[in-house]
């Protein structure tokens, strides 16, 4: 069995969008130096943060049918209406069940995105908006995970 850490990493099909920049030669050299340093740092950070907490509250909710049911009803009620569809296809907002994440695919990142929203988009912050607060957001994360097809 995979650890939650491994599950989360394998769920990530591609990296988040990096800002698209066209760089001059000097910057490319500069980039190379900084990239190596960044690589080291990035790996260190990944190791430190991704595996620090073996289980998110979503992983716990994933074992609880009642929690998943509530997560689904919350999703259907607010997220899934006209924005994020339950089926793939053209919708007004990204399809969330294909493990292809724009703002990070770890439980904590999904939670944070729902909580804080996405600036300059119609994705608003849902911190303190659900009847049972953060716990409801974790149930939504658990429901998304339970329904996701990462193949």
């Amino acid at each position: 069995m995979k650890t939650p850490c491994e599950v989360n990493r394998s769920n990530r099909k591609r990296s988040p969008d990096a800002p698209g920049l066209r760089l001059g030669a000097a910057q490319v050299r500069s980039l190379r130096v900084r990239t190596v340093a960044g690589l080291v740092l990035g790996v260190l950070l990944v190791g430190a943060t991704a595996c620090e907490k073996p289980e998110s509250p979503a992983a716990r909710h994933a074992q609880d049918p009642e929690a998943l049911k509530r997560g689904k009803s919350l999703f259907v009620g607010t997220c899934g209406a006209y924005c994020h569809g339950l089926q793939p296809g053209h919708r007004d907002a990204p399809y969330l069940f294909d493990c292809d994440w724009k703002h990070g695919g770890r439980d904590e990142e999904i939670f944070r995105t729902i909580r804080a929203g996405v600036p300059n988009t119609r994705m608003q912050a849902f911190a303190d908006r659900m009847p049972e607060g953060d716990d409801d957001l974790w149930k939504i994360v658990a429901f998304i995970r339970s329904r996701s097809d990462c193949s």
């Binding site: 990530r12 988040p16 990096a18 800002p19 920049l21 990239t35 950070l45 995105t113 300059n120």
Partner: peptide, 26 residues
């Protein structure tokens, strides 16, 4: 701070997720 930012830009620290501003038009 700059090095961390470059690591993020290169997508190497991708599991950390985008900074709140990334991918926006601000």
């Amino acid at each position: 701070h700059g090095w961390i930012a470059w690591a993020l830009m290169a997508g190497l620290a991708a599991p950390l997720g985008c900074s709140p501003d990334s991918g926006t038009k601000d």
